[in-house]
Design a protein around this nucleic acid. Structure first.
Lengths: 136, 136
DNA sequence: GATGGCTGCTAGAAAAACTTTGCAGATGCA
DNA sequence: TGCATCTGCAAAGTTTTTCTAGCAGCCATC
């Protein structure tokens, strides 16, 4: 009985959902709390507390758990309600963000590129408003 | 052997990388630590500590930061070394495509920007040894 | 009916995250 | 020059995570 995704009464902290997810994954793998604790290098009571949603695990712990349960960290975060699963198709962001987060560029290069980009945009919308001639 | 630290575990440096990433993102957005703190509902000294790699932010904090900096949580995790690089493709938005499809740019501007971008990337891959672009 | 090993959990202490307060350097203005 | 304001950071406090020690129930084998 206690196996069904507990109907949460009011607003179960998203952490309750995460805990339930972890517990179900652990049981699917037929692991005890102590075994999972050993795999993740955590203490068994703490695993228990996380599964019951009593605490908010840190990133470090989340990674260990995902690793031990053979689940992607992303999936964990989705279960925790921290990421919207739909986030992935609408990856059409503006060039500014893309440049800023591009791992293939150094910070200096990003700055230079962004500077050019901004000047372009501001030039194009010159007769509209904005302006704010940057370029320091 | 039972338990061997199979987990490479993060050198203290790993968290330093996350901090450096956050700091560079903040600066690229031209925000002060206090402004970022206000956006994320954190204290300014804590932002400072995170940027210097003194602490490992919790999931909650990581989400706030990602949100305020307009980067995806996944990107943060990659920067923190918590997600394998193989996920990058789905995570990292391709700057080239973003530039090419940006409606705020004219075709000529796109071409110019892409030309600069490509030259940067090829420059970086030429001197692979550069490494740790500890500029600033 | 003990003994032993297994399960999950409670309770209090240690450790780490996070905050409030405040300080020193830099910049701008009267 | 002095005052105001901004920047980033240090110290010490509070809150939360995480661990160590230990309890009670269940199923075996003796």
């Amino acid at each position: 009985m206690a196996d069904k995704p507990e109907d949460d009464e009011a607003a179960p902290d998203e952490w309750g959902r995460l805990g339930a997810f972890i517990r179900s994954q652990r049981r699917l793998k037929e692991l005890s709390q102590r075994e999972l604790a050993k795999l993740t290098d955590l203490s068994d009571p703490y695993v228990s507390q996380i599964e019951r949603g009593l605490h908010q695990p840190s990133v470090r712990v989340l990674k260990s758990l995902a690793n031990a349960l053979n689940v992607q960290v992303e999936t964990m975060l989705v279960a925790a309600g921290l990421i919207d699963a739909k986030h992935r198709d609408s990856v059409q962001l503006d060039a500014e963000t893309a440049i800023r987060t591009d791992p293939k560029l150094t910070d200096d290069q990003k700055e230079a590129l962004l500077s050019v980009y901004k000047s372009y945009v501001s030039t194009n919308s010159n007769n509209l408003s904005t302006t704010a001639g940057s370029r320091s």
